[in-house]
Simulated scan of single mutants.
Amino acid sequence: MDTLFFAHRGSSHKYSENTRAAYLQAIDEGADGIECDVHLSKDGLVVCHHDPTVDRTSDSTGLVAEYTLAELKAMDFTGVVPSVLPAGYGAENEQLLSLDELFELIEAHGKSVGLAIEIKHPSPYGHLLEKTVLQVLAAHGFDPQTGTAGSRGQISVTLMSFEPNSLRYLARTVNTSLLCQLMTEIHPERVQQLIDSGDLVRAGVYEVLYRSVAEGIELINAGGAGIIGCGVAWTRANEHLVRRWLEQGLKARVWTIDRPADAQFLVGLGVGELTSNRPAELRKELEQG
């Protein structure tokens, strides 16, 4: 198939998201790409983790930004999808990775793979997050014009964010064809509800998600991002807009696709990249269908 399958936070249906095991499973299954999320730790290192807090994904609580990498590694991140870790997939205290370690893991396996890095905002460090990500990429041979990285140019890097200002910052040095504007539908009442409840961390995240649509459409139309990164529900609701962008030559990477019916719809629409928690199974189901 011409369709590319990206493993959403690794093969996160089998092993807990954004862990060494999930990434290794994705590589072993032959995923075309790996999607990861990044924050800065207290000691200024780029950490692969989705939420701004560790509450949902670990045996601890608190903001990622309030812990050093060593402190984060001491936590257990295997509980989201409880499973026995195979030999070679690392012990429980080896599951959380820095972005630098994720590059090393991919290098060690020698396979050509895409790496879609989602930069998470709001960040207490502002654009220091983007700056540090670019420093890690440079250390691994990243070409900001072509997106190639790795010792043999075997890693194809793209950068994603819901925050349009993140992509505007990256576009100063990175080819916009490598930038993906993420979008999903959030109602403003939800943001206000979170503020009223005192959950300011989630309120900040939802405010970015809410702005991602109007500002994201504007950014894409202005040529500020070469990849459309919308959710499947948003894609179905805005099919005419996605079709127009595809006709203009933009790429689309739609998430999170676990049902064959959604995948078939998107492939028929002309979407070339699907992000899935179960990329190997989804590919097989489409090929057999």
Rank of each mutant, 00 (worst) to 15 (best):
G224N: 06
A203R: 07
V232R: 06
A225L: 09
N221S: 13
S197H: 09
R236F: 03
E215S: 14
V208I: 02
A233L: 00
L200G: 02
I195K: 04
A222L: 00
A203G: 03
N238F: 01
V213T: 00
E215I: 08
Y206V: 10
E239A: 10
V232A: 07
G216T: 01
E239R: 14
Y210K: 06
I220N: 08
I217D: 14
V205F: 12
I195C: 00
V191S: 01
R202I: 01
G223M: 14
I217F: 15
A233V: 01
G204S: 04
L219P: 09
S197E: 07
N221M: 06
V232W: 03
L219D: 10
I220P: 02
L194V: 02
E239V: 12
E207F: 06
Y206D: 04
A214C: 09
A225G: 11
G229A: 12
G223Y: 11
V201N: 10
G216I: 09
L219V: 04
L241Q: 11
E218K: 15
A222M: 09
V205Q: 10
Y206S: 11
G229E: 13
G204K: 00
C230S: 06
V242L: 14
Q192K: 12
G204Y: 02
W234R: 12
R236C: 00
R236I: 02
W234M: 05
E239S: 11
I227R: 02
R202Q: 00
L219M: 03
V242M: 11
R211L: 08
N221T: 12
Q193R: 05
D196G: 03
G198W: 00
G231K: 08
L241H: 08
I195T: 01
G216W: 14
S197F: 11
A214R: 12
Q193L: 00
R190Y: 06
V191F: 05
R236V: 00
S197D: 08
N221L: 11
R190V: 03
T235L: 10
Y210R: 03
L241M: 13
G204M: 06
E239N: 13
T235C: 04
Y210D: 07
E239I: 13
E215K: 12
N221F: 15
V205L: 04
G231A: 07
S212D: 03
E207G: 06
A222I: 02
